[in-house]
Amino acid sequence: MRVGVISADPGHPLLSATAEVLRGAGHRVAFVGPDGGTLPGCPGGPDRLDPGPEGEDTPGPLADVYLLKARTPDALTLAARLEAQGAPVVNSAAATARCQDRVAMAELARAAGLPFAETLRTATVGALAAAAPDLRFPLVLKSRHSRRDDLVARVDSAAELAALAANRHWREEPVIVQEFTANSGWDHKLWIVGGQPFAARRRSELAPGGRGPNLPLPPAAWIEGALHVGEVFGLEVYGVDVLHAGAGVPLIVDINAFPGVRGQVGAPEALAELALRRAASGSA
């Protein structure tokens, strides 16, 4: 089988380990940049599964399946074009896009009956600071558009919000506002790879002192709900961040298409198996 990996980071631990598993079984793997070009110096050098720039003939054969790790607009455009040519893409461009806008994400999740944190407000950080007298603290701010190094912050006062708005990097950032939910201070991280669950718990990024390392968590803790997320969003590789807000009540605070799933024993093998299964089944 020929497997293409759409990512700007061929050295990512999950991706490189998955490529090693696939190549060890005799399959071809090539890393494709979000703009459609084969990445120089990536593992497996001679493999060429480059779909080429839009509008040009394909310079090499299409892969039997593509793994869409990148989530930039260019990557989504490339994935949609590959799907139009009949290539299976995991996750699909449409499913990946559903997880990019946190407003749309919350609306879809709540409409499906998932216990997702409610979006109270949308604005820029600067506009929120101007409206601080009308806000109830503490609250949680998150970048409306999910991406690497986006904003996720607990804000306890108008003064903290003003300080955030004074940061030129964040002042015009579109954000959503969620009510802060009292919890244990631990995020429950659930990852699904082709139906196989993995899980860990980690200090919340909103907790004092930062996240720290992942710690073991039995995946059965909330596996049924996590699988339902995949059905609702059409995802095959995804992560669900869950808080336990007293009395064991789970609250979903984020959903991520194709997360890193770092340090999870068996995850590269599960991803390789999923890639081969989707390649064998053909177009989505």
Rank of each mutant, 00 (worst) to 15 (best):
P213W: 01
S92N: 07
R28K: 07
V125A: 00
V249Y: 07
T96Y: 05
A272L: 12
T38F: 08
V140Q: 04
A159G: 08
D9M: 15
G239I: 11
A158Q: 09
D149P: 00
A70H: 08
T77Y: 00
T77N: 02
V177R: 13
P40T: 03
R2C: 04
E172H: 14
A95L: 01
D187P: 01
G24K: 05
V21T: 09
V240W: 04
L251N: 00
G113Y: 02
P46Y: 07
A106N: 01
G86W: 13
F198S: 02
A123W: 06
L215F: 01
A70D: 11
V5D: 05
N183F: 05
E118Y: 11
R147V: 11
L243P: 02
G60L: 07
R110K: 05
L274S: 04
D50M: 10
V65F: 04
Q100P: 00
T96H: 08
L190V: 15
I192L: 15
A162T: 13
P115Y: 10
A182Y: 06
L276V: 12
L49C: 08
G44H: 00
F31C: 02
E54G: 14
T77R: 03
V232R: 09
A207G: 04
V229Y: 10
E173Q: 14
T122N: 09
V253H: 05
A130V: 10
Q85S: 12
A106D: 01
T18M: 08
Q85C: 10
R102Y: 00
V242R: 14
S204E: 06
G41L: 03
L139D: 03
V237M: 06
A127C: 09
F137I: 04
C99T: 05
A80R: 15
V177S: 10
R2E: 04
E20R: 15
L235S: 03
Q178A: 00
P219F: 14
S7N: 02
P174F: 09
D187Y: 03
L276H: 08
L114Q: 01
N167C: 14
R168K: 06
E179H: 03
H188D: 12
A130S: 08
T72Q: 11
G230R: 14
A19S: 09
G282N: 06
R136G: 02
A63G: 15
P250Y: 14
A163I: 05
P218Q: 15
R110G: 00
V155T: 05
A123T: 05
E56R: 13
D187C: 02
P59L: 13
A109H: 01
P174I: 12
V90P: 01
R81W: 00
T119A: 07
T38I: 14
I252L: 10
G126K: 11
T119E: 03
L62Q: 06
V90C: 05
A272C: 09
G248H: 00
V103S: 09
V265K: 06
L151T: 03
H27E: 11
G52R: 01
Q264C: 02
P197W: 06
I252Q: 01
